[in-house]
């Protein structure tokens, strides 16, 4: 039997396990297994770089985030909620000003300023190359910029998760 077919069947079994399992932790483990099998399929389909991303980020980081979220879901008292709210306002009160200043800096300094037609011109002149690094750097600069923003958003989300634990420890 073809290895790809075996991997696809295994992935389907782990997907069904994820969907049907009652326990959230077990469902999360099923999701991680699905992700690991997807990584193997990606390697088989000559997409090594994407496979490494999938393995490190989806199988590792996302599982950690899920397990942390599940383990942190225990109730707080009303007093703790009020303290949490006050501490958050005190801590992040300056954030709108920082965002406004950053937006003004990006607008007035014209950062980034070379996204306009570079990718379409490059596609016309060179075609689409095989090397993923060249594709990312020459054709998808705007995506890279957006990805940096997304990673910052994700890290803020993770910071929110772990801040809860700090408040719990008061």
């Amino acid at each position: 039997m073809d290895i790809n077919l075996v991997l696809l069947i295994l992935m389907m079994i782990s997907t069904l396990w994820t969907v049907m399992c009652r326990s959230l932790i077990k469902a999360t483990i099923g999701l991680a297994v699905t992700s690991a099998i997807l990584t193997a399929i990606m390697f088989r389909l000559n997409s090594a770089l994407a496979a490494v991303f999938e393995l490190s980020v989806c199988t590792g980081l996302i599982t950690v985030v899920f397990v942390s979220t599940i383990s942190l879901t225990k109730p707080l008292t009303h007093k703790e909620i009020e303290e949490l709210s006050k501490a958050r306002h005190k801590r992040f009160g300056y954030l709108p000003i920082v965002i406004a200043l950053a937006a003004a800096a990006i607008y007035f300094l014209k950062i980034p300023n070379d996204f306009s037609d570079s990718s379409s011109m490059a596609i016309r002149s060179q075609g689409i190359p095989e090397d993923v690094c060249i594709v990312l750097w020459n054709f998808r600069k705007l995506d890279l910029f957006a990805q940096i923003m997304l990673i910052i958003a994700g890290s803020l989300g993770v910071a929110t998760l772990f801040e809860e634990r700090k408040i719990d420890e008061w």
Binding site: S47, L49, A50, E54, I128, I134, V135, L136, D143
Partner: peptide, 8 residues
């Protein structure tokens, strides 16, 4: 190459 960049 293009599909990998999209997947990333």
């Amino acid at each position: 190459g293009l599909s990998q960049s999209l997947v990333i």
